[in-house]
Design a protein around this nucleic acid. Structure first.
Lengths: 244, 244
DNA sequence: TAAAATTGTGTACTTATTACACATTAAGGA
DNA sequence: TCCTTAATGTGTAATAAGTACACAATTTTA
């Protein structure tokens, strides 16, 4: 984007301003959690008449003085009390009629949070965790946004150890496998899963065992610190080659 | 995004309207071409004082009545005369001060076009193809946008036969390999490259040979029709599993 | 007809992926 | 105490994919 005509013709500013600025920009956060062997997503009751009784993602308008990339952190902080979470931009949705109250374009982010670490307040009774597998209909185009984010999540957990956000510090390989199965929606072979995880070199053997389980206890692991994470935008010079 | 407070309080609409709508949204197109064994990108001379002498990507503001996903097609059509091109959304950039004239958030798309099919008009002398490897500085944050799109392109050509957009209908494996090398910025082993392409099953052997080349002629191929392409957003029900 | 330039091809090695079965450990109940 | 239950921990063979590497064949041009 180069020209901003409305800034050059002061006298016609009002008209042009309204013409071009008659769009609002929001962010919507797909906040994933994990509980009872299910991938969950945090939703809020829609307060729009058009969507009465439906749930929607958590979002807000981007402020004029706020970096786009900061907006989802603010939303998570102010709407759900979440801080220092993992956030990744996924896609921007901008069909003309996606919002019944006006023209709103939204940028979707997904986030991974530890449900147990984040306790829902009783007062926040419009906020609820929903199992992703039981979600039928959401307000707006939020089903599309959710599915797009699930898709991205599924691709990314195969490449990067992001799921540390969803587990306690210490966990067994069985817990990790259950989590992967919940996210991917498939059953995995135990021996092959363990082999793959060991090959990735993401885990540290704690030399501790599970306790209070009604069966043979498993070994406990944690994620290695300092593992590299997603980097979507790249400041690398474009002529530098990649490894293939 | 759920609430739109400015639409509920009619009397304070003006203030709130200005507060929230004081952001413009644009699209920027990274238009890739291929010529003389180099990956090229179509740029336009910036007409902003702040960026005098610098080149920038081709973009425009999104219109209030226009779907976001339609805007880059319009931009390519109106600014560069391009129709029926491949376009893919990559990322949305929204740092507060990324545009010197005001708050503008931009969604970046990349596109692949056949340079020879699209002949630049003499009158469009502010438009030029630039080799990506020789680009040093662009207006705005367009270097970041360009690099992010190159990165995405590099990942996607490994998975999908998108490069058919950059080659003539009939081509030799050498031409195809040159193209991959130009995009990836690395040299590839000829035998392994050919093996990989055959494994992907993207190509059809035309049983024709190159002509008028100063050496042994190579066989000619074309891309199979009906090959599936990128699908970023997914309307699939979220509980359906993926293959892994 | 010899030299130059480039195509076309195969094999051995390594690495990753998949399918698959049995012994071991601890808890809990008879 | 011992048997049952329920899970953990482990290895191998087969297949598929990725990498490194060299030489003969074809055509043009001098």
């Amino acid at each position: 984007m180069d020209k901003l005509p409305f800034l050059k013709t002061a006298e016609s500013e009002k008209t042009t301003h309204l013409e071009f600025f008659n769009i609002a920009l929001s962010v919507d956060c797909v906040i994933f959690g994990y509980e009872e062997k299910q991938l969950k997503v945090l939703l809020i009751k829609s307060d729009l008449e058009e969507y009465e009784g439906l749930w929607s993602l958590i979002g807000d308008l981007v402020k004029p003085t706020e970096n786009l990339e900061d907006a989802p952190y603010r939303v998570l902080q102010s709407r759900a009390g979440l801080q220092h979470v993992f956030l990744e931009q996924v896609h921007t949705f901008g069909t003309v009629n996606r919002h019944p109250s006006g023209r709103v374009i939204t940028t979707a982010y997904y986030s991974l949070v530890d449900i147990n670490h984040y306790k829902l307040q009783k007062t926040e009774n419009e906020l609820h965790w929903h199992s992703t597998s039981s979600i039928k209909k959401l307000a707006f185009d939020h089903t599309l946004i959710l599915n797009t984010c699930i898709n991205r999540l599924r691709l990314q957990i195969m490449e990067q150890p992001l799921v540390y956000n969803l587990l306690p510090q210490k966990f067994s390989l069985r817990q990790l496998q259950d989590l992967y199965e919940a996210i991917l929606g498939v059953e995995l072979d135990r021996r092959n899963f363990r082999k793959r995880m060991m090959l990735k070199d993401w885990l540290v053997d704690l030399n501790e065992m599970e306790e209070d389980v009604p069966h043979r206890p498993g070994k406990l692991y944690r994620f290695r610190t300092g593992l590299k994470t997603v980097e979507t935008t790249v400041s690398r010079k474009s002529h530098e080659p990649v490894n293939v």
